[in-house]
C-alpha cells in the first residue's frame, strides 16, 4: 500500500515518515512541504532522521496523490481547502489529521467525501477515541442536571483555540445529551459573567510545555462530580493511529469516516 504524507516535515509529519517506513505492507510514496519552504527538494527520509529514501520533499500534492493509494495529511489549515479539492478530483483516499480549519474548509471536506474516502481525524490516538466513547456514555447517563465543563491543555506552540481535540471532547458531551454543540458551547468567561446558564457546555483552555497534552470532561452535579480525563505525552501515538487509519480506509467507498469507525468504537 502506497502512502503519501502532506506536511511531511512537521512534528507529526516526520514521525509519520518513520512510522510508514517501519510498517510492514506500507510503502512511502513521497511527502510534500509548504511551497517555497526550505524543505522542498530535501530527501523525505533524511529530513525525518532516517537514511535517505530516494524521494524528494515536493510541493506538488496532485502528483503525490496520483502516485499514492492514500494520503495522510498533517500539514496546516490554510492548505486544507486545496487538498480537499484535489482529493475530490483524483478520488484519492485521505486521512485528514490537520485541524484548526474554518467553515470553508469544512465544507470542502464534506464535498470531497462525495468522491473520495476521507477520514476526518482531528485526533488519531486510539485512547483518545475510546475516551470520546466514555464521555458520550457518561454525558448520556448523567444528563443536563450535571453541569458539563471541558478543561483542555495543549503544548505552548498550538496557535489556535479550542483545539480540534477539545472540540471533539465537547462534541462527545453534546452528543451524549442529544444537543448541538454550537447551541450550547460557552468558550469565554471574563469579568462579571453572571450565574452559569443551565445546559451550557463550558470550555477552559490551558497552554504550556512542549509535548504533553490533556483533556478533562467534568460533570458537576449537586451532590457529586464525575470526571474523565486523558493525558498523552508522546506525539508518536498520533502517527501510529494515522497509519492505522490509512490502512483501514484504502478500498472503502467514498464517504466521510471518523476515527471512532476506524477503531471500531462507533
Amino acid at each position: 500500500m502506497k502512502i503519501g504524507i502532506f506536511g511531511c516535515g512537521g512534528v507529526v509529519g516526520r514521525l509519520l515518515v518513520r512510522e510508514v517506513v517501519a510498517t510492514e505492507g506500507c510503502e512511502l510514496s513521497g511527502g510534500t512541504g509548504r511551497p517555497g519552504g526550505a524543505l522542498i527538494g530535501v530527501d523525505v527520509g533524511e529530513q525525518a532522521g532516517l537514511e535517505p529514501v530516494g524521494l524528494a520533499v515536493s510541493d506538488d500534492p496532485r502528483a503525490l496523490m496520483a502516485a499514492s493509494d492514500v494520503i495522510i495529511d498533517f500539514s496546516l489549515a490554510p492548505a486544507t481547502v486545496q487538498h480537499m479539492l484535489l482529493a475530490a478530483e483524483t478520488g484519492c483516499a485521505v486521512v485528514l489529521g490537520t485541524t484548526g480549519f474554518g467553515a470553508d474548509a469544512q465544507a470542502a471536506v464534506d464535498r470531497a467525501a462525495a468522491d473520495a474516502a476521507i477520514v476526518e481525524a482531528p485526533n488519531t490516538s486510539p485512547n483518545f477515541n475510546y475516551l470520546l466513547v466514555l464521555i458520550e456514555r457518561i454525558s448520556g447517563v448523567l444528563g443536563d442536571e450535571y453541569d458539563a465543563e471541558v478543561l483542555s491543555m495543549a503544548e505552548r506552540r498550538l496557535p489556535f483555540a479550542p483545539s480540534g481535540t477539545t472540540i471533539e471532547v465537547a462534541k462527545a458531551v453534546a452528543a451524549g445529551r442529544g444537543v448541538n454543540l454550537d447551541d450550547v458551547i460557552e468558550k469565554v468567561r471574563d469579568g462579571v459573567i453572571g450565574p452559569r446558564p443551565p445546559g451550557v457546555i463550558g470550555i477552559a483552555i490551558v497552554r504550556g510545555g512542549r509535548i504533553a497534552g490533556g483533556q478533562r470532561a467534568i460533570f458537576a452535579g449537586d451532590d457529586e462530580v464525575v470526571e474523565v480525563a486523558y493525558r498523552s505525552t508522546d506525539p508518536a501515538i498520533y502517527a501510529k493511529g494515522a497509519v492505522a487509519a490509512a490502512r483501514w480506509v484504502v478500498g472503502k467507498p467514498p464517504a466521510k469516516y471518523s476515527m471512532r469507525e476506524v477503531f471500531g468504537l462507533a
Binding site: N127, D223, V225, V226, V228
Partner: peptide, 12 residues
C-alpha cells in the same frame, strides 16, 4: 505515553 482516568467525587 498516555493515560485515561475516571473520577468520582462525592460532595454531600
Amino acid at each position: 505515553a498516555s493515560r485515561i482516568e475516571i473520577v468520582h467525587k462525592a460532595i454531600s
